[in-house]
Structures are given as C-alpha cells and as structure tokens.
Design a protein around this nucleic acid. Structure first.
Lengths: 99, 99
DNA sequence: AAGTTATATCGGTTTTTCCCGATATATAGA
DNA sequence: TCTATATATCGGGAAAAACCGATATAACTT
C-alpha cells in the first residue's frame, strides 16, 4: 500500500464519517448494544447509518481495510469492523517525519 | 476548506512529491542556489523536476496552497512556493484527535 | 435440502480528477 | 511601446472514483 493510497482512502466524506462513528460505537451504534462492541460493528449497522447501498458500504469498508484503518472479524454471517488505532498513530507520525 | 479536501490534496503522487522536494530545497533544487531559498522555490524549477506541463504544475501548487500546505510569494515575474510547516503539524494533531 | 439473512463481488453509469494545449495576465527589459 | 519570460486560468479528452443494482457466496434455520 503506497502513501498516496492511504490518503485516497481518506478522500471521501462517507469513509471519514465511518471512521468517526467507529471511534465511539456505543454512541453511534446503540442498536448493537446487545451484542457488544468487542469486535467492532457489523456492516449492516454501518450501512443503515451511512444511507448508501449495501454494496457501496461494503466497498468502502474494504478500502479502509486495505489502507489499514480498520480490521474485520467474521462471526457467523456477520462481519464486524473496528478501528485500528495503530494506523492513525502511524499516519500521524508519518506526516511529521516523511511528509 | 473541509477535512476531506485536505486529504484530496494529498491524494496525488506528484503533489506528495512536490511537498517532499520542498522539505529540502537546497538538495532538490540546486539550480536555484544563486537566488537563495528564503521564499521557497519558483514554479519553473518545480515544473522541470516534476516533468509535467506548466499548467498542470501551476494547478497542483494552487491545490496545495488552498489546502494550506504551501504559501506563495510573488517576486517580479516569479512566484515562489514554500512549505507551511504549521499545516503539517496541524494535520498530524488532527489525525490523532478528530480522526 | 430449501429458504433466509448478511456480506462480497461484478458490471455499468455518472461524477470527479488528471493532465494537456491554448490563451490570458503580469512583470521586466530594450 | 514592443518583445520576451514566468505564471495563471480556461476548456476539454482520458482515466479514475463514486455509487448503484444484480448476482454470488457464506452461514444460519428449519
């Protein structure tokens, strides 16, 4: 994954929003409270909140994952996505040093 | 300037490269040594190094300027661009806090 | 096995970005 | 003023991204 692709992943309002939502899943996705948030939030919840089609949101989550900003866990029929805080730390450092 | 536009400005290989070049103008633009680097580097030098047309490079520099990553100074027929380090600091902080 | 639900992938249309050539503007010098 | 040089802006063709619907895959339920 090249540097420019990291920034491309962040060059979309919806994707930025998803990352912000995942920062505080308890608040952003209360519907999932029963299942907990240990592995993140499932695609359906994110899709509903984003107001885009299922295919688009699935696509966006792949983009974010390829860039390292989220990780996914398959549990039964659901795929849960959660933030990978290391990626943000890393990017923050990179901007200071390499950029 | 919205957050997403900051990242769009960084979503291009040439623009990223220009920012890196401007980090160390003495090394990247030795041709300009006679004139000094106090105000940055003029468009022509950047264009020659980028290997793109004058209009494209001028455009790219505008994009970087609108996003705050560079500032420009007009001196005679030349426009000099240099990095605005504050913008990078700011972005680095933003990624840790807001993103 | 058949039906249901959740997600991923595929093909295509629309929108945006990339990058160009042509032209306009600004400054300097003869 | 006329000419040359440096940069900015404008209009457009080509490439990439956004986003969709349709369909495929995977796992659960009965």
């Amino acid at each position: 994954m090249e540097q420019v692709d990291i920034f491309k992943a962040l060059s979309n309002k919806t994707r930025l929003q998803i990352l912000e939502w995942l920062k505080d899943p308890e608040t952003s996705f209360p519907e999932q409270k029963a299942n907990g948030y240990a592995n993140g939030v499932c695609v359906g919840q994110i899709q509903a909140k984003a107001g885009l089609t299922q295919s688009t949101v699935s696509d966006y989550l792949s983009v974010l994952q390829r860039a390292g900003f989220v990780t996914s866990t398959r549990m039964g029929q659901w795929t849960y996505y959660k933030r990978n805080e290391e990626a943000f730390e890393h990017l923050s450092t990179l901007i200071k040093s390499a950029l």
